[in-house]
Amino acid sequence: MLNAKLSSLLFALLASVSLAVSAAEVPNKPASDAKTVQVASVTTVNINNADAATLQRELNGVGKVKAEAIVAYREEHGPFASVDELLEVKGIGAATLEKNRDKLSVH
């Protein structure tokens, strides 16, 4: 009976040592294997107060001439009531507006 208890105890001890050694031998996964979640940073541009340089830098498809046209339109007609009003600016079409809609604000 004592022999059976010692055998069971010895088996349990060897099994736990074996598991501990196995766990220690498993290498960590390299960082390149880990899934990375990248959060896109979206800069919001208030078209009622952004200067031409900011508009040019932050908006896709808006170069110097279009950026200056946005500022000139705003100076002539007052603040934009909505981002859709950008379609009234010469050179700004639906495609340009849609490319930038998530970046634009009027507040």
Rank of each mutant, 00 (worst) to 15 (best):
Phe11Ala: 15
Phe11Cys: 08
Ala12Phe: 12
Ser16Trp: 11
Leu19His: 09
Ala20Glu: 11
Val21Gln: 07
Ser22Leu: 15
Ala23Asp: 08
Ala23Trp: 15
Ala24Arg: 08
Ala24Tyr: 15
Glu25Arg: 12
Val26Trp: 08
Val26Cys: 05
Val26Lys: 09
Val26Glu: 13
Val26Arg: 12
Asn28Glu: 11
Asn28Ile: 13
Asn28Pro: 07
Asn28Phe: 14
Lys29Pro: 03
Pro30Arg: 14
Ser32Pro: 03
Ser32Ile: 15
Ser32Met: 10
Lys35His: 14
Lys35Glu: 11
Thr36Cys: 13
Val37Asn: 09
Gln38Leu: 15
Gln38Cys: 07
Gln38Arg: 12
Val39Met: 14
Val39Leu: 10
Val39Thr: 15
Ala40Tyr: 06
Ser41Glu: 15
Thr43Pro: 00
Thr43Ile: 13
Thr43Asn: 07
Val45Asn: 07
Val45Phe: 04
Ile47Ser: 01
Asn48Ala: 03
Asn48Cys: 08
Asn49Cys: 11
Ala50Gly: 02
Asp51His: 03
Ala52Gln: 03
Ala52Val: 08
Ala53Tyr: 12
Leu55Asp: 00
Gln56Asp: 07
Gln56Arg: 09
Arg57Trp: 05
Glu58Tyr: 09
Leu59Cys: 06
Leu59Ala: 02
Gly61Met: 07
Gly61His: 10
Val62Asp: 00
Gly63Pro: 01
Lys64Gly: 02
Lys64Ile: 05
Lys64Thr: 14
Val65Pro: 01
Val65Glu: 07
Lys66Ala: 05
Ile70Ser: 00
Val71Ser: 01
Val71Tyr: 01
Tyr73Cys: 00
Arg74Ser: 00
Arg74Val: 00
Glu75Asp: 11
His77Ala: 04
His77Trp: 04
Gly78Met: 02
Pro79Glu: 07
Pro79Leu: 10
Ala81Glu: 09
Asp84Phe: 08
Leu86Gly: 01
Leu86Glu: 02
Leu86Trp: 03
Leu86Tyr: 01
Leu87Gly: 03
Leu87Asn: 05
